[in-house]
Measured scan of single mutants.
Amino acid sequence: MFYPNSPQTSPQLTQIPYGQQYAMMQRQIQQPYHPFATTEPQARLYPYHYQGPIQQEQGGFITQQSTAASPQYVQMRVTPVDQSIMSGYPNQTANGSSSSSFNYNIHPQQQQQQQQQQQQLRHHAMPVGSVPLQDDRYRKQLIVNYLAPDVTSTDLHELFSRFGELDGARIIYDKQTNMSKGYGFVYFCHAEDAKEAVERMSGYEFHGKWLKVGYSTNPLNIVPSNSSPYVHAGSRGAAG
């Protein structure tokens, strides 16, 4: 039997160049792979992502010199942007860049009308829970959420009447099932009393439920100042 490094198959040491006398086997001759043993700084910083320098080929596509990437890492192929796409944008300079302001050559009167329309939209648009300043009635009506099913309009009136005089209180019921929808409205005579009720009743436990109280901004629920107070009856038909 002959071994790869046996004296019968191995040459004389004098015939082997210096430095390879003890590297006779194939696994010894093959050098191990060192990912950080390279002179390129990109490979030292990113050993798993770097795959060699990027070269520009004919046709405008950018390719990489090395083989496919590892399945664990996804390499994105980048193509140059066609400058003709950006030619339609206004205020574009000769080098292809555009300024931040756009001039669509709008007539001054049209621009003024658009600004007025935007101001009107901001004036009428009102986020949930906010209180408008032009109508004091919005500051007097509250919406009470997360009410228990057994709470009546009379219970709601008695709960909030300790903060001040009320114009009314009612629970909203479903017309088909005649069941409470879980929320109601309270109408105060003074805005200061309503503000105190919002601050003190939010998070209050009532009939096993934690109440959420806020201003009601729905104009359909506003009680006119010259109208008669609501009837605080315990029956659902009268309260709904």
Rank of each mutant, 00 (worst) to 15 (best):
4 P>V: 10
5 N>W: 08
6 S>I: 13
6 S>E: 07
8 Q>Y: 06
12 Q>S: 04
16 I>S: 08
18 Y>W: 12
21 Q>M: 15
21 Q>K: 00
22 Y>C: 14
23 A>R: 01
26 Q>S: 05
27 R>Y: 11
29 I>M: 15
29 I>W: 15
30 Q>D: 02
31 Q>A: 07
32 P>F: 05
34 H>P: 14
34 H>T: 08
35 P>V: 08
37 A>Y: 00
38 T>Q: 13
38 T>F: 08
40 E>I: 05
41 P>E: 14
42 Q>P: 03
43 A>E: 03
44 R>F: 15
44 R>C: 09
44 R>S: 07
46 Y>T: 01
47 P>K: 01
47 P>G: 10
48 Y>E: 12
48 Y>D: 02
48 Y>H: 05
49 H>N: 14
50 Y>C: 14
51 Q>H: 11
52 G>T: 08
53 P>K: 03
56 Q>S: 13
56 Q>V: 14
57 E>C: 10
57 E>I: 06
58 Q>I: 15
59 G>W: 14
60 G>L: 06
60 G>M: 15
60 G>W: 14
61 F>H: 04
63 T>S: 12
63 T>A: 02
63 T>V: 09
64 Q>H: 12
65 Q>R: 05
68 A>C: 07
69 A>L: 09
70 S>D: 06
70 S>H: 03
71 P>H: 00
71 P>R: 00
73 Y>R: 03
73 Y>V: 07
73 Y>K: 11
73 Y>W: 10
74 V>P: 14
75 Q>R: 03
75 Q>I: 15
79 T>K: 05
80 P>N: 08
80 P>W: 14
81 V>H: 14
81 V>C: 15
81 V>G: 07
84 S>T: 11
85 I>S: 04
86 M>G: 00
87 S>E: 05
91 N>D: 06
92 Q>L: 07
96 G>S: 03
96 G>M: 15
96 G>L: 05
97 S>D: 12
98 S>E: 13
99 S>F: 15
99 S>E: 10
100 S>R: 05
103 N>D: 00
104 Y>D: 00
104 Y>C: 14
105 N>V: 15
107 H>I: 15
107 H>L: 07
108 P>L: 09
110 Q>G: 06
110 Q>V: 12
110 Q>H: 01
110 Q>P: 09
111 Q>D: 10
114 Q>M: 07
117 Q>F: 10
117 Q>S: 12
118 Q>L: 14
119 Q>F: 15
120 Q>L: 08
122 R>S: 10
123 H>L: 03
126 M>L: 03
126 M>D: 09
126 M>F: 01
126 M>G: 06
127 P>Y: 01
131 V>F: 13
132 P>N: 12
136 D>R: 03
137 R>N: 06
138 Y>T: 00
138 Y>F: 13
140 K>L: 09
141 Q>M: 00
142 L>R: 09
142 L>T: 13
143 I>E: 00
144 V>H: 15
146 Y>Q: 09
146 Y>E: 12
149 P>L: 05
149 P>I: 00
156 L>W: 09
157 H>V: 11
157 H>K: 10
158 E>G: 08
160 F>T: 14
160 F>D: 10
163 F>G: 11
163 F>E: 01
164 G>V: 05
165 E>D: 14
165 E>C: 12
167 D>W: 00
167 D>A: 05
168 G>T: 01
173 Y>G: 11
173 Y>K: 08
174 D>L: 00
175 K>I: 03
178 N>K: 11
180 S>K: 05
180 S>V: 09
182 G>L: 02
186 V>D: 13
187 Y>P: 01
187 Y>L: 08
188 F>Y: 15
189 C>V: 13
191 A>E: 15
192 E>A: 01
192 E>T: 09
193 D>G: 04
194 A>Q: 04
197 A>E: 05
199 E>Q: 15
200 R>M: 14
201 M>Y: 01
201 M>F: 02
203 G>D: 05
204 Y>T: 08
207 H>N: 07
209 K>P: 06
209 K>Y: 01
211 L>E: 13
212 K>H: 05
212 K>R: 08
212 K>G: 01
216 S>Q: 13
217 T>P: 03
217 T>K: 04
218 N>C: 13
218 N>K: 00
220 L>E: 06
220 L>F: 04
220 L>A: 03
221 N>G: 11
222 I>C: 06
222 I>H: 02
224 P>G: 09
225 S>T: 02
225 S>P: 05
228 S>D: 03
229 P>K: 13
230 Y>W: 11
230 Y>H: 08
231 V>H: 07
231 V>W: 15
233 A>E: 01
236 R>H: 01
236 R>L: 08
237 G>V: 04
238 A>M: 13
240 G>Q: 07
240 G>A: 07
240 G>D: 06
